[in-house]
């Protein structure tokens, strides 16, 4: 971080003199930090509204909520631009918003509308926004991992100054595609950042029961790349790890595996009856909710005051309400067009 912190840090000279201020707050500008907070609010409110629509029977299919995991999505995307790619997962709403997607088009996709990101063909599990470098959520656990490596191969061939960031969950760390992909990214020194959001359960099976290593980041040793485990509910810890890994990737040093320890406070999907975890466990993690923690740090370090935080929260709420309005008033796709978009020619 020291080598790159001077290129963007213009937040507050006083901060750099406070020894206990996390690096991320010195590295990013005030506007960037406000933007990060707004994205965390947008993600939370998007998913709360999504959940509410389900409970009222207004939407169709299934969905996977990342409530409680917002810091990892937003923190990782902090050093990224539209030139950088991400691949995402079935639990991908957060990544999508963190990378810059419009909640209106996301809600529209969620409601199966023609104005959605995928024109209603994909739904919650396939939302993508290629204009922001988001190559899409993915319904197959581990499906996006080699695709991110392929995107990194393109970056290298096209000599672009960019990275591919690959989000996946703890469940994917036992898929063959994970191991094959980390190996290839390492032997070819590709600009990839592998981000494992370890939310402790692959559906109902805990990492203790499914995974032979204590930390998923330990897998990195086998593929000769740095592996780092961070508090995934701490925005600043995640953002710092991402800045470092992105710099490493862009300088040609190859991939990094970041493990963000986090928790989904909601169930796996609609079918989840929560038989595999205790209320105490859920409550303990809810007490570490990343959003109040981020707000608290912004206040404590004198970066934002209560009024400014309230303004950001209200701006996010206005955006969510107009996004919902846009989606609800959008047309359904035409059934006669059902077989469009299968082929380009």
């Amino acid at each position: 971080m020291d080598t790159i912190s001077n290129e963007a840090s213009n937040l507050n000279n006083n901060l750099s003199r406070m020894a206990n201020v996390p690096e991320a707050y010195r590295y990013f500008t005030l506007d960037q930090l406000k933007g990060a907070l707004k994205k965390m609010y947008l993600i939370r409110r998007f998913e709360e509204e999504a959940e509410d629509s389900y409970q009222r029977g207004l939407t169709y299919g299934t969905m996977h909520l990342s409530i409680g995991q917002e810091a990892s999505a937003v923190g990782i995307c902090m050093p990224l631009s539209n030139a950088d790619y991400i691949t995402s997962t079935h639990r991908g709403h957060g990544h999508c918003i963190a990378k810059g997607a419009e909640p209106g088009k996301m809600f529209a996709e969620f409601f199966g509308k023609e104005t959605g990101y995928c024109r209603g063909r994909g739904g919650s599990m396939h939302i993508a926004d290629v204009t922001t470098g988001n190559l899409g959520a993915n319904g197959i656990v581990g499906g996006g991992i080699p695709i991110a490596v392929g995107a990194a191969l393109s970056i290298k061939h096209q000599k672009k100054n960019a990275v591919a960031v690959c989000f996946f969950g703890d469940g994917a760390n036992n898929e063959g595609s994970f191991h094959e992909s980390l190996n290839m990214a390492s032997i070819w020194k590709l600009p990839v950042v592998f981000v494992c959001e370890n939310n402790q359960y692959g559906m109902s099976t805990s990492i203790e029961r499914s995974t032979s290593v204590k930390n998923i980041a330990d897998r990195a040793v086998s593929y000769s790349m740095p592996g780092i485990t961070v508090d995934g509910n701490s925005f600043s810890d995640v953002a710092s790890a991402s800045v470092e890994a992105v710099a490493r990737a862009k300088s040609g040093e190859g991939p990094t595996l970041i493990e963000c320890l986090t928790y989904r406070t909601r169930g796996h999907s609609r079918s989840d009856r929560n038989r595999y975890r205790t209320k105490e466990e859920i409550d303990a993690w809810a007490a570490r909710d990343p959003i109040p923690r981020f707000e608290g740090e912004l206040l404590n370090f004198g970066i934002l005051n209560e009024t400014m935080i309230a303004e950001v929260r209200e701006a996010a709420e206005r955006e969510i309400q107009s996004a919902l309005e846009f989606a609800k008033s959008s047309p359904d796709p035409d059934p006669l067009q059902v077989a469009n978009f299968v082929y380009s020619s």
């Binding site: 190559l135 080699p146 991110a148 490596v149 392929g150 191969l153 393109s154 591919a164 094959e180 992909s181």
Partner: peptide, 12 residues
Amino acid sequence: GGAGVAVGAALT
């Protein structure tokens, strides 16, 4: 993995 890398490269 190899096929997936090819898919990702084609996509980009």
